[in-house]
Simulated assay, not measured.
Amino acid sequence: MLVTVKRLLTGLVLSAALAFPATAFENRAEAGFVIDQTTGTILFSKRADEALPPASMSKLMTLYMAFEAVRDGRLSMEEKLPVSQHAMNYGGSTMFLDTTDRVKVSDLIRGIIVLSGNDACAVIAETLSPDGTEAGFARQMTLRARQLGMTSSTFANSNGWPAPGHRMSMRDLALLANRLITDFPDFYPMFAETEFPFDGRAPQNVRNRNPLLRLGVGADGLKTGHTQEAGYGLVGSAKQGQRRIIFAVTGMDSAKERSEVSEQIVSWAFRQFSSKTVLRGGKRVAEADVWMGDVPRVGLVSNEDIDVLVPVSAGNNVTAEVVYNGPIQAPIAQGDEIAELVITAGDLPPVRVPLVAETDVTAGGFTVRMRTATSVLFQSIGLGS
């Protein structure tokens, strides 16, 4: 049977969940997704799983694969790559490359991040493509995205140039941003660069279009996007104190609106939520009943400190449930995952934390087994307590 045990977390008041829907936050983005990276809490979701035109925000996938290639030794940051006619022919935002150039990988990467170079993406794509074409690299992008858990992303090119079927969801973009931050901490600081005057050849295109980088709000990435079809969008991240948020929004009508919406998201996410440590690793939360063990119950603990995000309007009101299928059959080894702590703060999605056995529990001897069997028999005929 399913056993649920409600427990009061030390120092917090147990009460009914307050009416604070995370989706109550309104902004002018057509679609968006906001997550607190530190706790994994989803703060906002609006058409988040809908596959939409991502414009230049899809360049993040090209960057991810370029970083992987550098890490794996298939590409060197100092290596100089040729520029094809196909790459040179790209319009829009470019590094103004031509077929006489051989460009360092590090410059191409900075050109993608800061200058949003469509041509730079194509150079990287053709170099890493299994067949030497950008289309071949795009197919590889789609496959790699699936492997990373991005289920709503399909790529037709390396840079987000408008094309049928070139689509990403806001959730996928946020997931990708998180992977860039966590998988490539040595490369990630490049996303905070505000200028890159490549070779002095394009003075009109040297500034990073990310509107948050110069506002002093902790923003340090990642990528803007704009096409007529997609509107204006941004995949952003900001860190204040120990907290980091990641967000993806799209469909704004202007660069000004994109800037206003993005700043609004950062302000809201950090001002309206606070992180609280509700459980210390190794501290007993509850006990689970044991079946045929040398003791009748075993303590339940978490392996690590547990932080949860709490809406400011909810104060210290947090509910928690310990859930397990029990009684637990002995023997039980210390550290076995045997229960789950479900923590709810306001109307935010519940946080689920695995709980493990605090100690070993060995199987009981003959006397314990006889006593247990007798108890079960008496209960089945109505004589048990």
Rank of each mutant, 00 (worst) to 15 (best):
A66H: 05
E79M: 10
V83W: 01
S84P: 08
K46T: 00
T41V: 00
A48V: 07
I42W: 02
S58G: 04
P53H: 02
R74F: 11
G73L: 12
M77H: 07
T39N: 10
L52V: 15
R74M: 09
D72V: 06
E68T: 10
V70Y: 04
S58E: 11
R47F: 08
H86Q: 13
K80H: 10
G91M: 13
L75F: 05
M57G: 02
Y90D: 00
M77L: 15
L43M: 12
E50A: 15
K80T: 15
F44Y: 15
S56V: 06
L60A: 09
L43P: 01
P53L: 02
G91I: 12
M77T: 12
A66K: 00
T39D: 08
K59Y: 04
Y90V: 02
D49C: 05
F67E: 03
P82I: 06
M65E: 14
S58I: 06
E68I: 07
T41R: 03
T39L: 10
P82R: 06
S76K: 14
Y90F: 15
P54C: 11
D49Y: 10
M57S: 10
L60I: 06
F67P: 00
D36T: 04
K46Q: 13
T39V: 11
P53D: 03
A48P: 01
Q85N: 12
F67L: 12
A51L: 12
L63T: 04
D72C: 07
M61I: 05
G92W: 09
S93A: 14
F44Q: 13
K80D: 03
D36S: 11
S56F: 05
H86N: 14
D49G: 12
S93H: 01
V83E: 02
R71Q: 14
P54V: 09
P53G: 03
M88Q: 15
P54K: 09
R47D: 14
A66L: 01
G73D: 10
P53N: 02
L81A: 09
S56I: 05
M65C: 12
A66M: 01
P54I: 08
E68P: 06
T39M: 09
Y90P: 02
L60F: 06
L63N: 02
T62A: 03
I35A: 07
A66R: 00
E50V: 15
Q85C: 08
M61F: 06
L60R: 04
G92N: 10
Q37Y: 14
K59I: 07
F67S: 00
Q37V: 15
E50R: 14
I42E: 10
E50C: 11
N89I: 05
K59N: 09
A69V: 03
D36F: 05
Y90T: 06
H86W: 13
M88Y: 10
P54A: 11
I42M: 11
S45T: 12
D72S: 13
S56E: 04
T62M: 00
A87M: 02
L81I: 11
L52C: 08
T41F: 01
P53W: 05
E68D: 15
G40I: 09
K80C: 11
T41D: 03
M61R: 02
A87H: 03
V70W: 04
A69I: 05
H86R: 15
S76N: 13
P53T: 02
I35K: 10
A69Y: 02
L63E: 12
S58A: 14
G73F: 11
S58K: 02
H86S: 13
I42V: 15
K46P: 00
Q37I: 13
R47W: 06
S76V: 08
M65G: 09
G73V: 11
D49P: 04
P82D: 07
L43S: 00
